[in-house]
Every structure is written in structure tokens, then in C-alpha cells.
């Protein structure tokens, strides 16, 4: 209905949904992603039909601006799943966004045909619709970035876990060999791992070996001490081992108070002490 005032885009979309879809799918057949054969034409058509479907519903009330409004829930959901599935199929994020953006040209063509007699209103409608599609395209981009960050976070987490092993080397004896720099996230992970292992293995002695820790400053020393004190609250005795000449010098120079923690130069010495505490005897078999 080419009445007075602003053009009614939602009406146009509803009326011409089928034709727009046909044109859009045809246009896509020529673009790069389709040529790369990443996606079968049938799926391309299904995706486009669904996107157009939810979009027609969303704009039905005349809202072309606020895509956080509830009527856009369906669009947002679909775009998120589209971005995820296209990323899995090997699309680059810009290819997915370009696909969304390509809807603009098609709709412009229909707008033009329909309202060629009213150039000013046409221009406004084109700008509005363009702004809307830009936002939608950006959603797919954001989803992609979010997915990436998720992956990075997962990897960070598993790296932390890998770098803080706790080994039960004997009944009631745990060893936690620390290697590399200890920052606050790692210190936290070490503490949680160690304490949970105490419960799981019913251990009463924990040996923390810092042979592989390049440097100990006040911060690191305090973190380790805190972990050992927490272990003590759970009834486990802690032995700090692997303290070389340099680290022992640092500890004294920094004035770190080890607060009665038992320390030994080597893991071997620590283990010997642990056996002694548990009244275990290691002896060569006779004969």
C-alpha cells in the first residue's frame, strides 16, 4: 500500500517474502562461499528462509531499531546458531556477515520497484533497513568472537590443570611437583587441586617440590605458605622441598617467615622424612 508518509518496510517484507527469498538465494549462488562448495544449496535456502521468516515476524510491529526487544528474540537466537554452524562448516566470520549483509541489496531492489515514485521516503526506508541489517550482521560476528573466547578460556583452564599435577606416591603421601612461574591463577589452582587430592586419597603428608620453580619472591612464597596452612587445616602435614641455595638465600634476604613449615633441600630428603613420619621403613631385600 503506497500511502502517504513513511514507507512500511514490514508490510513489504511480509508481502514479498517469497520473492525476496528466491532472489536472495539466487544471488548467493554466485558468491564466494557457495563457490567454495562449503554449503549445499538446499541448506543455503533453508537458512535464508528461516532467517527471513523470523525477521518478518520481528519487524511486524514496526520496530526496526531496537534488536534487544523481545520480538527480536527469535532473530537473535537464529543468528547465534547460524554463526556457530557456519563457523563449524569453515566459513570465515566475514563471509557469514557478508551473507547477512547481502540481504540489503535484494530488499533495496524490491523497495525501489515498489516505491520508485517517492524517492525521499525510499531513501529513509533504505537507510533504516540498512542499519537494521548491519546490526544483524554484527551479531553473527560477536557470536563468533564469543565462541573463540570460550575456546581460549577452556584451553587456559586445561593448561592450568596440566601444569599443576598432584601425585600420590605412597599411601597417605602426596607430591606436588611445581614447575614454572607461579602466578595468582596458578597458585589458586594448585591450592584447590592439592586440597581436593588430600580428601580423595586420605593423605596425611603433602610434599611440595619447587625444584622447577625458577624464582621465589615474597608473593610466591606467601601463596605457597597459604596453601600449606590450608592443608594443615585438613589435617595434612606439609613438607616444602627442592629449595636450592639461591631460593634459600632469597627467602632469608626477603625476610619471608616460613612459619614453622618443614623444609628440605631435595624431594628425596622430603620423602625420607615422610616415610619416617608414617613409621615406614625402606630396606633392601635380603639375598
Amino acid at each position: 500500500m503506497a500511502g502517504k508518509g513513511a514507507l512500511n518496510i514490514s508490510e513489504l517484507l511480509t508481502k514479498k517474502e517469497k520473492e525476496i527469498l528466491d532472489e536472495w538465494v539466487k544471488a548467493q549462488a554466485d558468491n564466494l562461499a557457495s563457490r567454495r562448495g562449503l554449503i549445499p544449496e538446499k541448506q543455503q535456502r533453508e537458512d535464508s528462509a528461516r532467517l527471513l521468516g523470523v525477521l518478518v515476524k520481528a519487524v511486524a510491529g514496526g520496530n526496526l531499531e531496537d534488536i534487544t526487544a523481545p520480538e527480536y528474540d527469535g532473530v537473535n537466537r537464529f543468528l547465534a546458531s547460524l554463526a556457530a554452524s557456519r563457523a563449524n562448516q569453515g566459513f570465515s566470520p566475514s563471509e557469514t556477515a557478508t551473507y547477512i549483509f547481502s540481504l540489503k541489496n535484494i530488499v533495496f531492489k524490491f523497495l525501489q520497484e515498489e516505491y520508485s515514485d517517492r524517492p525521499e521516503a525510499l531513501l529513509k526506508a533504505a537507510i533504516d533497513f540498512s542499519a537494521l541489517v548491519d546490526k544483524l550482521g554484527l551479531i553473527t560476528f560477536e557470536t563468533y568472537v564469543k565462541g573463540r573466547e570460550e575456546v581460549i578460556r577452556e584451553q587456559q583452564k586445561s593448561m592450568l590443570e596440566l601444569s599443576t599435577p598432584v601425585i600420590q606416591i605412597w599411601d597417605e603421601i602426596l607430591v606436588s611437583p611445581l614447575i614454572g612461574t607461579i602466578d595468582s591463577a596458578r597458585a589458586r589452582q594448585i591450592m584447590e587441586n592439592l586440597l581436593e587430592s588430600i580428601v580423595a586419597t586420605k593423605s596425611s603428608i603433602v610434599i611440595m617440590d619447587i625444584t622447577g620453580v625458577p624464582a621465589v619472591d615474597t608473593e610466591v612464597a606467601n601463596r605457597l605458605l597459604r596453601t600449606m596452612q590450608a592443608a594443615k587445616l585438613m589435617g595434612a602435614e606439609c613438607i616444602l622441598t627442592g629449595i636450592g641455595p639461591q631460593i634459600s638465600q632469597t627467602i632469608v634476604h626477603l625476610g619471608v617467615d616460613l612459619g614453622g613449615v618443614i623444609t628440605r633441600a631435595s624431594l628425596r630428603d622430603g620423602l625420607t622424612l615422610a616415610f619416617k613420619r608414617l613409621k615406614l621403613n625402606v630396606a633392601r631385600a635380603e639375598g
Binding site: L195, Q229, L233, M234
Partner: peptide
């Protein structure tokens, strides 16, 4: 003797600086 302090409680007590 206080027995059965859970790991997460031991951590919290430590971080708060509570000494028993």
C-alpha cells in the same frame, strides 16, 4: 581435634586470615 574441614572451607579460612 577439629576433623573433616572441607577443602573449600580451608581455602576460605586461609584467605580470610582466620587462625584457629
Amino acid at each position: 581435634a577439629l576433623v573433616g574441614i572441607r577443602p573449600e572451607i580451608a581455602i576460605t579460612l586461609q584467605e580470610m586470615g582466620l587462625e584457629l
